[in-house]
């Protein structure tokens, strides 16, 4: 099956009843991320990006429409250990140290931690936290906590990866570095990836396609294909074709 590890949303709607208002977070949204693709989701704050992720993770149910992950119900896919996720805020457990927080998905899925000890060490190194294995989240900076969350999302070697603004709290240099690392990991693993971001450059650099959303009600405005060669090198950030694509996304964001 071609979409064996893809993400598919069909006519998905989700509304929230507030105290005295109704927010249409998603209105009839359809999106198809083929297996092994990298999709970036960009849009104004509050347009429903996190909501879409939560639906695809089975954390929430749509009012109407269907969602499948790897051809299965999202919750089922999660239980099977196919997915990985890093949330917008790190959501670390304050009583677990860095290594233990990274190992959490293994505990949830009932996998042996010992078998993944090497993976955990590698991931800690990847996110530049070597030496902080035993630190508690309360002792880390905001950016460090976010890096722990990124490492945690990768610990299960997921087939489908959801990232909700994972680099939001990082400085520009570190962010670039992490972008390169993510691309490297993605090329190696070919996990179907859905990345929510506010950075146009980041979206264009990493994604095959940038999905631009609009708010009130939350919907997909335009999809911009990014036909750049891989692996993309840091020099590309200054290339003219890169700028042209960035401008296209920015225009779409402005509602053109």
């Amino acid at each position: 099956m071609s979409d064996s590890s893809g993400i598919r949303l069909e006519n998905v709607s989700r509304a929230f009843k507030g105290r005295d208002t109704i927010v249409q977070a998603l209105d009839n949204v359809s999106l198809d991320c083929p297996a092994g693709s990298f999709t970036a989701l960009i849009g104004p704050s509050g347009c429903g990006k996190s909501t879409m992720l939560r639906l695809a993770l089975g954390l929430d149910r749509p009012d109407s429409g269907t969602i499948t992950v790897s051809g299965r119900d999202p919750a089922e896919a999660a239980r099977a250990g196919l997915t990985g996720v890093a949330f917008q805020d790190a959501a670390l457990m304050p009583w677990r140290n860095v290594a233990d927080n990274i190992a959490l998905p293994l505990d949830v899925l009932g996998r042996k931690r010992a078998e993944h000890a090497g993976t955990i060490t590698d991931l800690i190194e990847l996110v530049g936290l070597t030496g902080f294995e035993k630190a508690l989240p309360g002792e880390l900076s905001g950016g460090m906590r976010q890096r722990v969350a990124i490492a945690r999302s990768l610990v299960t070697s997921p087939q489908v990866l959801f990232l909700d603004e994972p680099f939001g709290a990082l400085d520009q240099i570190l962010r670039r570095q992490m972008n390169l690392e993510l691309q490297r990991i993605w090329i190696k693993s070919r996990a179907t990836t859905l990345l929510v971001t506010h950075g146009i450059d980041e979206a264009v650099f990493l994604a095959d396609r940038v999905v631009v959303m609009q708010s009130r009600p939350g919907r997909i405005g335009r999809v911009v294909d990014i036909p750049l060669e891989r692996p993309r090198r840091p020099e590309i950030f200054t290339a003219p074709e890169f700028h042209a694509l960035q401008d296209e996304v920015a225009e779409a964001l402005d509602g053109h």
């Binding site: 089975g58 805020d89 949830v108 299960t156």
Partner: peptide
């Protein structure tokens, strides 16, 4: 904190896992 529960749920954690790994602690 609901967000901690979300992490466990996102990995398909059962109700018991939520309790054991997060809530009781």
């Amino acid at each position: 904190d609901r967000r901690m529960l979300d992490v466990v749920r996102a990995y398909g954690g059962s109700r018991w896992k939520e309790l054991r790994l997060v809530e009781i602690r």
